[in-house]
Design a protein around this nucleic acid. Structure first.
Length: 330
DNA sequence: TTCAATAAGAATGCTCACGC
DNA sequence: GCGTGAGCATTCTTATTGAA
């Protein structure tokens, strides 16, 4: 028991101490610990942690069987493990107050938004509901914690000037093509990186993208995007079928994060903060609605399943409400 | 050494099915 | 029909890797 304790402390400290220091720490701990009797508390904690981990593993594999993807499983695992770490007790002993306190502390400590807290609550809810179903606990402690009400806030968009500044800051024809394509089609970054060269129809200035859930739709780009894209493709020397590849040698298909970092960097040179692919999408939708494009058509263009999602963009500009009021009501 | 790209993890956004 | 729970995608930031 004592050896185990010492072993655990020195392993934890090994990251910050040198080999000699760890050895010294070991001998000091041995001397100090020999004067005391270690109670079984620690042992119980260990057992709790072990059985909690086991249950979590079963839960995660159950979720996997139900068809959850790997990122979800990972996110669930890390979130629940954090709870176990902060509150080392048996899952059966968790009370509603424990969970509430954990969420409150988490929010204060990390200055998290309500949405984040609600996400965590959702994950706990899923886990404890499963424990309840599987008869490990009588009643889920999360059942009494209700959805965290979250307000909606208006998201910022890029102005015409911003987009021009970004274009001016591009040093590579590839980046210019990416920006023009994103700005004129409003496609998701996930759709952009999945594109192949043959998906582009230059004569019709359109291309087929595969969106969320492998749904197919057609998006349209402008003349500027067409020219830059053609210039970029003719400058390429590799044989990769991907539409956008990395600048450096292996010339592999560009990843989502690759596009993101690249855009952020261009944004920094242009002195525009928080430039990311989704901002172009938002900008396109807001501008289209501003200029009077019917919401149903914008919905088609963006590939939204529900019109509510598209309507979020329509609410951005209060000026339109004023204009429409003058136009239709006065 | 430097720069581009990826990896990882937390936060946030979007979609859909289901139950009331 | 509306609100909510759940699943997954995207965003955002930082650390790490790898090639020139």
């Amino acid at each position: 028991m004592k050896e185990k304790l010492i072993q655990e402390i020195s392993t934890a400290m090994a990251e910050v101490l040198s080999f000699e220091q760890v050895a010294h720490l070991n001998s000091v701990l041995l001397q100090v610990v020999s004067q005391y009797t270690i109670t079984e508390d620690g042992e119980t904690l260990h057992e709790n942690a072990a059985s909690n981990d086991r249950l979590l593993d079963i839960f995660l594999s159950a979720k996997q069987v139900e068809g959850c993807t790997t990122p979800t499983i990972k996110y669930y695992g890390s979130t629940i493990r954090q709870l176990f770490k902060k509150m080392p007790k048996k899952v059966t002993d968790y009370t509603t107050e424990d969970i509430r306190a954990y969420l409150a502390v988490f929010q204060r400590k990390n200055k998290s938004s309500k949405v984040t807290i609600d996400n965590i609550r959702r994950i706990f809810s899923s886990f404890f509901a499963w424990l309840e179903e599987e008869d490990y606990i009588v009643k889920s402690p999360v059942r009494r914690i209700h959805k965290v009400k979250t307000g909606t806030q208006v998201k910022e968009v890029l102005s015409d000037e911003n987009i021009e500044q970004l274009r001016d800051s591009c040093t590579k024809i590839r980046d210019l093509a990416i920006i023009d394509l994103l700005a004129s089609t409003g496609m998701r970054v996930g759709e952009l990186v999945k594109l192949n060269r043959e998906d582009i129809n230059f004569t019709e200035r359109e291309c087929i993208v595969f969106g969320k859930g492998n749904k197919e739709r057609i998006v349209y780009f402008n003349a500027r995007a067409k020219i830059h894209l053609q210039q970029y493709l003719s400058s390429r020397k590799d044989r990769n079928k991907a539409l956008f590849v990395s600048l450096a040698k292996p010339h592999k298909r560009l990843e989502i994060s690759g596009v993101e970092t690249r855009l952020r960097k261009i944004g920094r040179t242009a002195k525009i903060v928080r430039v990311h692919p989704h901002k172009f999408r938002r900008t396109l939708a807001t501008m289209a609605i501003d200029k009077g494009m019917p919401v149903e058509q914008v919905q088609r263009l963006l590939g939204h399943v529900k019109i509510d999602t598209t309507m979020h963009y329509a609410m951005v500009n209060q000026n339109n409400v004023k204009l429409s009021h003058r136009k239709f009501i006065n």
